[in-house]
């Protein structure tokens, strides 16, 4: 029998008996980051493609929620910091190797852009809106004129944001479950899927709804493929990763992951969307809600299970 004990009574809070340094804040923040990245990505994409009128839901309507979601996400991130008064230190340096630094700066850039985007589309919701202030009015005019340029910037930033939400975890070698390059694309796909689903809610036309249902379906397909790929990668890897994947294959996270994330969050909504594409009457919000729920759970479960997995030595 092998017996391995920490005999000094070590019980560092948040570390022992296993890591619990990140709670709900980080997964929520990552979810909102991914979701907003998805929305902004499609908004930018269809602006650049010149399809603003056809897909007004994506370009003009859905992004209205983005600034609010980003602020909630940032608030969650802030709440998670344990040395809050020093948070401004994030903006005293750019650390290219630190995903946290990337995220902080990307959010710093993308949040104002999302506000501008909201501002220049405000008439969509308040048709009688007039900018009273001369400066604001001028600014508005400037951005409206350069909207495509702005969209390009937004496209790039939203991609960075989307990938970052996945890379944040996968940068941690120390946690075998996170130590896979698939998390980046997976979280990106999940964020885009959540974004697409949200756009469905805001879509004006049936045409637009169908497009985003199709996009969503495709993204879900990619996600499922990535998940299978991820597990195959784990099983073929080191002992620690085999054990980490065990958390989902018979281990304590098996049920939450396969039921909440894969079944309810991917397979069922995909099925509903297929039905919808086949012109069956499905309440619009149902697959959307499921996709959003699945996307949220994915982050929660990966965050918690990842903290549970560790090197054995």
């Amino acid at each position: 029998m092998r017996e391995e004990l920490i005999t000094s009574g070590r019980m560092n809070a948040h570390i022992d008996p296993h890591l619990e340094i990140w709670h709900w804040h980080i997964p929520l923040y990552l979810f909102l980051g991914g979701l907003t990245a998805g929305i902004l990505f499609f908004a930018a994409l269809y602006t650049i493609l010149g399809k603003e009128e056809r897909y007004a839901g994506a370009v003009r309507r859905a992004p209205v929620v983005v600034p609010f979601l980003l602020i909630i996400g940032l608030a969650a991130l802030f709440l998670d910091l344990r040395h809050k008064l020093y948070f401004w230190q994030l903006y005293t340096t750019i650390k290219l190797e630190s995903p946290m630094s990337w995220g902080a700066w990307t959010l710093m850039a993308i949040t104002p852009i999302s506000v501008i985007w909201l501002a220049i589309h405000i008439q969509e919701f308040f048709p009688k809106w007039e900018w009273k202030n001369i400066i604001l009015k001028d600014l508005n005019g400037f951005f409206v004129k350069n909207k495509v340029g702005l969209a390009w910037v937004m496209l790039v930033l939203s991609l960075i944001l989307g990938i970052y939400t996945g890379i944040l975890f996968s940068a941690f070698n120390a946690r075998p479950l996170w130590n896979t390059s698939i998390l980046g694309p997976l979280f990106l796909a999940s964020g885009l899927s959540a974004g697409a689903a949200t756009i469905i809610l805001f879509a004006r036309s049936h045409d637009e709804r169908l497009l985003f249902a199709r996009i969503d379906l495709m993204l879900i397909g990619i996600e499922l493929f990535l998940i299978i790929h991820m597990f195959m990668g784990f099983r073929a890897s080191t002992q620690v990763q085999i054990e980490a994947s065990g958390l989902f294959l018979g281990g304590p996270y098996t049920a939450p992951f396969w039921i909440f994330v894969v079944m309810l969050g991917m397979v069922v909504p995909a099925f509903l969307e297929i039905l919808e594409l086949r012109h069956k009457k499905i309440p619009v919000y149902l697959p959307v809600a499921l996709v959003l729920f699945g996307s949220l759970m994915l982050r929660f479960i990966i965050a918690y299970a990842g903290q549970f997995s560790r090197w054995l030595y």
């Binding site: 920490i6 049920a255 939450p256």
Partner: peptide, 30 residues
């Protein structure tokens, strides 16, 4: 008591659910 360090494989799904929904606050810090 000295605790087993590598105990992650053994946690029950109950505590996994606890983790998800914030039971960590219940664990008494010293």
């Amino acid at each position: 008591m000295a605790h087993k360090r590598r105990d992650f494989i053994k946690i029950s799904s109950l505590s996994a659910a606890g983790l998800l929904f914030g039971a960590h606050q219940l664990r008494s810090a010293r």
